[in-house]
Amino acid sequence: METETTQVAGVCVDAGGYALGMPQLCADWMPNQIFWLVITLIAIFFVLSRIALPRIGAVLAERSGTITNDIAAAEDFKNKAAAAEAAYEQALADARTEAQAIIAKAKAEIQAELDVELAKADAAIAAKTAESEAAIAEIRDNSVKNITAVAKDTAKELVLAMGGSADAKTITAAVNARMKG
């Protein structure tokens, strides 16, 4: 039985079916390995080059394309956001400027009104003052006149009471001289 196997297996195995020397170096077996290796390599090559590698290459290219597109889109959105922010800032600045202008205008208006009112009030005050001054002057004039009259009368009476006599003209001149002094 074993002998039969040995007979058909060739010179590289012994009667027990064990290897004689290194099976790697058995020349009888080499053509078989080389033949099937070449067949296998050709098959692998065709599987890879016809089906697998183009498919994987396409998937990788598609993915990198998608990623590039997505990054570009993200960049776009970022720019848009920046633009929106700039517009917002601009609007805010405009609003501030406008507010400042409105405040300045309001202030100016108020100031103008105030000035008018002040002028009016000043005029009224001035008028009142002038009136009062006139009244005071009149009162003073009156009182001076009265005092003069009273002084003349008193002086005349005094002169009469002292037993002198004096005409009105002299007394008036004397009183006036005194009043000036």
Binding site: E4, T5, V8, A9, G10, C12, V13, G17, Y18, A19, G21, M22, P23, Q24, C26, D28, W29, P31, N32, Q33, I34, F35, W36
Partner: peptide, 22 residues
């Protein structure tokens, strides 16, 4: 330990030719 490297036909016994399925 070298017997694991023996080339033998996969189906049945026989001579290992260049075309044999081993």
């Amino acid at each position: 330990p070298l017997d694991q490297f023996i080339v033998k036909p996969a189906f049945g016994d026989g001579v290992v030719n260049w075309y044999t399925i081993t």
